[in-house]
Design a protein around this nucleic acid. Structure first.
Lengths: 201, 201
DNA sequence: TGCATCACTATACTGAGTGCATTAATTATC
DNA sequence: GATAATTAATGCACTCAGTATAGTGATGCA
């Protein structure tokens, strides 16, 4: 498959991967705040300036793929079956994201990220923010697909994403296994989509 | 009423208020990134070091009262009528927060904060983060009150708060009037609590 | 072969946030 | 009322994230 991206592009990706790899390696040993961008750049044998050519902030080196996750959900909305009910479409979007999260469980990256989200406020804030950005794009897709007004669409998607985020972080903070965390995400989805839970009332 | 907090404490609060006032004044003129902590401290006639004695980060000077808002919601849960259904309790908690937000509409502070949340990613991230922290405390109250498991409680409260946050920011970004934003918050609450909306399906 | 592009570099800068030693005003104690 | 213990505030030096600028060299393309 000579899908040749050119040598220049290949080298660029190599540098990027080296930075991610160096970051993962260093964060595995030390706490988030004890690793500086200069350290990461040094370990990847590039200049600090180069780091910021590849990642806008220090946190982003850990979130390399987050944007792709939202794209999956957007596609799930756009490719819905004709006439599919809203709740079904939302469920499908959530399922795509959760399944994709499942995919990178085997790489230790998921666990590392989980630890850092729990221990570092800066990372947690960044995750919340990128999640919210993703949410905005999903909201637009849902709004257009079902001809809703802005606020209703935002509330619907916000409820779904809010439930999943909260449940995920709760599970991580509790020290759950990755499988348990995935189960928590699925539970949250059904809680948000059918409000018919209320066991205690 | 000699509810004497002591002169020292009074002076401390005065300094704090001066910092908030100076910040509000400066942010009203310039963009968030164009005002440095040193500027704020200078305008309040204190040292930069003193600023950080009162606020952990630059963003926090804008969120002086956020923690109080969560306390209201927690109290709403704790003071629920005996046997009140979960949905009713959550609605009451949401209503308390929204009403409290309504209270500081007359002060221009609400509008200023709104503008900064929309224009500055740093502020938005911080708001999301503090909102999430508040959410954690509300979740604990709900979990205990209704004897739920961690994940279900987190998902329930997360859905409610996620819907309100998303709708609020959407409304702000659209340039709504404060009244319209409050209406959006109320809409979001009912969307999250009764999933019986789905007009388009 | 020559030219344009672009990844990367070196250096110096701004601004957020912290550590530490110090001062001066308040509060508590005798 | 003098004295000692707190503590809000200060000044200064420091680390580190992120940016500006100018420049070098490899790569891609005509």
């Amino acid at each position: 498959m000579p899908d040749d991206p050119g040598r220049r592009e290949r080298k660029k990706q190599a540098t990027r991967q080296a930075l991610v790899a160096a970051a993962v390696r260093l964060f595995a040993d030390r706490d988030y705040d004890e690793v500086s961008v200069a350290d990461i750049a040094e370990a990847a044998d590039v200049s600090k300036r180069t780091f910021f050519l590849h990642f806008p902030t220090k946190e982003d080196v850990l979130l390399a793929d987050g944007a792709g996750r939202a794209a999956l959900a957007v596609r799930a909305v756009e490719e819905r079956a004709p006439g599919a009910p809203l709740s079904e479409t939302l469920a499908a979007a959530a399922d795509r994201m959760i399944t994709s999260a499942e995919a990178d469980l085997p790489t230790g990256l998921a666990a590392l990220r989980a630890r850092l989200v729990v221990t570092s406020p800066a990372v947690q804030a960044r995750v919340l923010h990128t999640t919210f950005a993703a949410q905005t794009r999903i909201t637009a897709a849902v709004r257009d697909a079902y001809d809703l007004d802005d606020v209703t669409a935002a509330a619907l998607v916000g409820a779904l994403m809010g439930a999943i985020s909260a449940a995920t972080i709760t599970s991580l903070e509790r020290g759950d296994t990755p499988e348990e965390t995935l189960a928590a995400m699925r539970t949250a989805t059904s809680v948000a989509l059918r409000c018919a839970v209320t066991p205690g009332s």
